[in-house]
Nucleic acid binder design. Structure first.
Lengths: 145, 145
DNA sequence: TAATTCTGTTATCATGCATAACATTAATGC
DNA sequence: GCATTAATGTTATGCATGATAACAGAATTA
């Protein structure tokens, strides 16, 4: 390799994320789901009745970009909408959506475990803390020159 | 927040990477560069004369997707091509490209330092090792069911 | 020499992400 | 109560990144 970028945390973060995503999408394709779909199913399982906008805020997906995602999952009968308001609707997993969610969890749990097991044991204890630290640091660094 | 995905390393990795990339692109826009352009300039500075395909292999960019990147940078006079072979050309930073590269380094170094400083000191020592571990683990996990 | 591999390239498609605009509805300030 | 402001869902659109398939020309190899 001899990649002169390999000592830049931001670059390594991106490569790791990209590879991790590729592996996950590969596994989720068996359920005909994209990772973003899976993340919404998981969110709705934990917070049923949440609004489309709220979900987007939590997952960091623009309001406008939530539309095709929700439509797709609703069209597949995986989620239901219930009017909350004149303008907003609560999102819920349908029975079919819950069934698929358990399959999603099997895939995700297995994958995340595989990912973690690939990290040398001595580093494993601090691994999540490091990732969260970078997340927070990167969020803070978005603005500024 | 209350994000039930926050304990999944893959998800946190993605969010951190996404945020880090946003901040970087924001800073690079002052140089009218995308992060991928910057990464190629940095690579060519370290390994002048490298081939387009080789660069793509190192940066994990498909051969076909290298074409517009190289064309764009060449059109801006930042890189030169020198025929190596009947089929391949070596890529080099032009004088202008080298000048821009130093500016890129200023931006990148400053940004990566900011990113690192946002990580609590006790974690900082192992931070890079953790990122590399996830990178390697994720690469290994791409294949497999 | 023949078969295979590699390079650069074109074309095309899927995905993710950003922005602007809009109508409807809700919340807020006075 | 009414006028202003804010929020929601939506449509449309564009840009950037990646992936795949196909091809011609050149180099390697068997």
């Amino acid at each position: 390799m001899n990649d002169p970028l390999a000592n830049l945390p931001g670059y390594v973060l991106r490569r790791a994320s990209s590879a991790a995503l590729a592996g996950l999408n590969r596994r989720l394709s068996a359920l005909t789901l994209r990772h973003v779909d899976a993340s919404l199913l998981m969110l709705l399982n934990g917070q049923p009745g949440i609004t489309q906008s709220e979900a987007g805020r939590i997952l960091d997906i623009q309001r406008a970009n939530m539309v095709p995602i929700v439509s797709r999952l609703e069209a597949r009968g995986l989620i239901d909408r219930q009017r909350v308001d004149g303008r907003s609707q609560g999102l819920y997993l349908s029975a079919e959506g819950e069934a698929l969610h358990t399959q999603v969890m099997t895939v995700i749990d297995g994958y995340e475990q595989t990912l973690m097991e690939g990290v040398p044991a001595p580093l494993r204890k601090q691994a999540m803390a490091v990732l969260h630290a970078f997340w927070q640091s990167a969020e803070a660094a978005i603005e500024g020159d």
